[in-house]
Design a protein around this nucleic acid. Structure first.
Ligand SMILES: [Mn+2]
Ligand SMILES: [Mn+2]
Ligand SMILES: [Zn+2]
Ligand SMILES: [Zn+2]
Lengths: 158, 158
DNA sequence: CTCTAATTAGTAATAGTTCCTATTAATGAT
DNA sequence: ATCATTAATAGGAACTATTACTAATTAGAG
């Protein structure tokens, strides 16, 4: 499963096993809690690091939906998600792409049983300015853009 | 513009003026920086509080897109957004809802000039379990679900 | 078995947001 | 215009979620 120079530690194995067991789009902390039941000394940092490595390798998927905690998905097939605005659970939507947008919300309601459905559709890509600067699709989008935030070291001069 | 018992302070007025001036989906901190240029003693907390109040009153919109900072939009008409994976800027998409999903990405590319476009479509609503518990669409979705996170006071017993 | 770089546990630091409290000020009533 | 009420403020602490650091451990190639 892993690349050369990537070791299958017992921590990593247990994280994958628990992800396989729940498939419920758990947060890093939820994975941590489950794995800790089988390996008490595991640290939350280890869980975060492994979830990052696994998603960078395409073994799992990171879900950055809405404002709360990041979630992780062992299912890497192309599918969409629906989130409950009360309890924050996230369910799968095996949505094919041939419907018209006007009918999709009705379909989503039928498929999931959710009510009061809203849709936030976000696109991402490379803006014209960044294209000019020579960024390519295959170059790493992991370069952190300057967050411009107060606590950043470089903004702490004053 | 505001409800009774809502005062138009000079801080609130300046925040609205700067939002009107940039329309660029600024973060709270970016709004803070601009307003501070005109009212140096304003605090970041005041900016956050006002952005919350204004969005709760429907004057502006909160954008919880992706993993980074929350952003705010003075334009409350129904429209979609596209984010650059390199520089994190967010542009508007005046997308009508009559296209088929398969054609939308092409349209978005034509309209925005973005390349390498991906789409994350997230739905939100009330799950069947929460419907059973008597939650209604008009009841406040602001009840914070238990985040289950380590640092929560109630999880700090051990 | 040995060697070594990948990984770990524990903890500190950071980023983004919310909360708290004494003080100030916007607005309605006099 | 002055007063009284109470919403709102500045400043800072606290909180949530994630990332970074470091000395010790360990997977696994040779
Ligand atoms: Mn899923
Ligand atoms: Mn917009
Ligand atoms: Zn629910
Ligand atoms: Zn860009």
């Amino acid at each position: 499963m892993c690349k050369t120079n990537t070791r299958l530690t017992k921590q990593r194995k247990l994280i994958l096993e628990e992800l396989e067991r729940v498939k419920d789009h758990p947060t890093a902390y939820e994975v941590y809690e489950r794995v800790r039941g089988r390996l008490p000394q595991i640290s939350l940092g280890t869980v975060y690091r492994n979830l990052d490595i696994l998603s960078a390798n395409g073994i799992i998927k990171r879900l950055d939906i809405g404002q709360g905690q990041r979630r992780f998905d062992i299912t890497t097939d192309d599918h969409k998600h629906i989130r409950c605005i009360f309890c924050n659970r996230i369910d799968d939507i095996p949505l094919n792409t041939y419907h018209q947008l006007t009918t999709i919300i009705g379909i989503v309601g039928d498929v999931t049983g959710y009510r009061g459905i809203g849709c936030s559709m976000d696109f991402h890509g490379i803006c014209p300015e960044c294209q000019k600067q020579g960024n390519r699709i295959h170059s790493s989008p992991e370069q952190k853009p300057d967050s411009g935030y107060m606590n950043n070291a470089k903004n702490k001069e004053e």
